[in-house]
């Protein structure tokens, strides 16, 4: 029997546990605080590494949002056959207007097309030389925004099949392509994020490994006087947590700063395009996510280092 156990002065395990964790938390923080430069360097490396994929993610989100706002101008033009009379054209417009998936349908007669063309093109006098009006009547369709790409395609197929319609053409094919590119970029961002998460873990792991090497004697002495492995492990894990948290905060600051710096120019650019779109920043949720991810990676990195290197230092 241990004398100390007989005294019965040890507090119950829960309060022992919390007190011990609080103690380790603050001593590890204090230790990092006393070496501000090296702590800051490590945290900055982690921060930059985390900020990179997060920044790319924000970029993709913004491009997506901008292109979505352009989607409002997404229109389909149904060029009618010359054999279709204006009455038939108007009637078809009415019918299409009521179709699900169509937000607006407008009829532009051959004469209106001609007038518009004359006004905008500057070829007015050349047109006067022509005997017939070469322009077809057009029904301009604005599809509903909530349509998926497949539904939109199906709608276009149906329009093409209409007997009055010569050609159905969806504007802004480029938008489709942009979406396709964005989808790829998004995947690339995920891959980069995964690789950089690994880099963060390796950074923390290596820092902790050096820490373990530097404190070999201390670890040995602790084992000699009966410290369980969990006790020896804990300060290193907390150090990893602090690095991760600091790195996450630095990443957030970097991203916040970058967004602040870009907001002005972005608004100017948007105004040039007569858009009111402003940069989508970090939501509170993703702001919390960054330190959270930092902490998680910090724990994993330090746990990896501790698992590999702590067992080596058995007292001999």
């Amino acid at each position: 029997m241990n004398g100390a156990e007989r005294d019965g002065v040890r507090p119950p395990w829960l309060s022992r546990w919390t007190e011990h964790h609080a103690r380790v938390m603050f001593t590890t923080l204090g230790r990092l605080w006393r070496e501000p430069l090296s702590t800051l360097f490590t945290a900055a490396v982690i921060g930059i590494t985390l900020a990179l994929p997060a920044g790319l993610h924000v970029l993709v989100q913004n491009v997506r949002a901008i292109s979505y706002s352009w989607e409002e101008s997404l229109q389909a033009s149904l060029f009618l056959k010359d054999s279709t009379s204006p009455e038939q054209g108007r009637a078809l417009t009415q019918t299409l207007q009521r179709r699900p998936g169509v937000a607006r349908a407008g009829y532009i007669s051959r004469e209106q097309s001609l007038a518009e063309f004359r006004e905008l093109s500057g070829f007015g006098q050349a047109l006067d030389l022509l005997q017939d009006n070469p322009l077809p009547a057009v029904i301009v369709i604005t599809p509903r925004r909530e349509l998926t790409r497949e539904q939109l395609q199906q709608l276009m197929n149906e329009f093409s099949a209409l007997p009055e319609v010569e050609i159905a053409k969806l504007d802004q094919k480029w938008l489709e392509r942009l979406y396709a590119i964005l989808a790829i970029v998004e995947r690339v961002v995920y891959v980069i994020a995964a690789l950089l998460a690994l880099a963060v873990m390796v950074t923390v792991g290596n820092t902790i490994r050096l820490d373990i090497e530097n404190r070999r004697e201390e670890i040995m002495v602790m084992k000699l006087i009966g410290a369980p492995n969990s006790f020896i492990r804990r300060p290193f894990l907390y150090t990893g947590v602090w690095y991760g948290l600091l790195g996450g905060l630095i990443a957030w600051l970097l991203l916040y700063g970058a967004l602040q710096a870009l907001t002005g120019p972005a608004l100017r650019l948007a105004s040039l395009y007569e858009s009111t779109h402003s940069l989508t920043g970090l939501s509170p949720a993703s702001s919390l996510l960054m330190p959270g991810v930092g902490i998680l990676l910090g724990i994993l990195g330090s746990a990896w280092a501790v698992g590999r290197h702590l067992v080596k230092h058995e007292p001999s």
Binding site: A4, V9, P11, E19, M222, I225, A227, P228
Partner: peptide, 11 residues
């Protein structure tokens, strides 16, 4: 204090 800290004694 170290052995006492290991055993979780109160401050």
């Amino acid at each position: 204090a170290l052995p006492l800290v290991i055993r979780g004694y109160r401050h």
